[in-house]
């Protein structure tokens, strides 16, 4: 009988204890961000609204990918690193130049340029393996995560525009002509040389 009443007493007591904790929550600062209304990219505003409880997104946040084509050497290492093949790169030859990547002090040598650099964000799982593999730091995650689209096809990000592509292809064919001319000239020279020797 005693145990029975004890049980009831304990029940009521502990429930009220729990209630007191719930009640206390009314007097602490909110920690849920009112997401679409509040601008989460500005740290100052967040600090103001949430009294320093919440910070902005960290700099290394793994959002959708971005590519800096000016430092990309079209080495295709990111393509090989991606476990689900969502990066597609086509590349052609270009004028030899040195580019300064963000990952190392030494500049990288660029001999090829992309005519197509597509990333299917609908397939991507934001694993960062491509960014880790990239030797120049051309492919990086941005802080953007809002990417709703109406069509699945719109999720394919193309980083090379049509004009650039045409330009690159044109330059490539010019280079090919030049290279062929050079080769022909060389061959002619060789032939001359052997003739002279004879």
């Amino acid at each position: 009988m005693n145990a029975y009443f004890n049980n009831i007493k304990n029940g009521i007591q502990t429930v009220f204890e729990g209630m007191s904790i719930s009640l206390a929550s009314f007097f602490v600062h909110p920690i849920t961000i009112q997401y679409p209304e509040d601008d989460i990219s500005s740290a100052e505003k967040l600090k103001e609204t949430y009294k320093g409880q919440l910070g902005p997104m960290p700099e290394n946040y793994r959002g959708i990918l971005d590519v800096d084509l000016s430092i990309c050497t079209a080495c295709q290492l990111c393509v090989k690193a991606c476990p689900i093949d969502c990066i597609v790169i086509d590349a052609v030859k270009c004028d030899k130049s040195k580019v300064q990547g963000t990952k190392s002090e030494k500049p990288a040598v660029k001999t090829r340029t992309c005519t197509r650099f597509d990333i299917h964000m609908g397939k991507c799982m934001f694993c960062a393996l491509c960014t880790l593999a990239c030797p120049t730091g051309a492919i990086v995650h941005t802080k953007v995560f809002e990417m709703n689209k109406y069509q699945l096809q719109d999720l394919v990000l193309s980083f090379v525009s049509e004009e650039e592509k045409e330009k690159a292809i044109k330059r490539d064919s010019e280079l090919k002509v030049e290279a062929a001319a050079e080769k022909a000239a060389k061959a002619a020279k060789e032939a001359e040389k052997t003739e002279e020797e004879k």
Partner: peptide
Amino acid sequence: EMICGARLTYNYYSIGGVN
């Protein structure tokens, strides 16, 4: 998130260390 940039699927460990 501070250490790896993701909140749920971290992919933080690499073969031979951490990323």
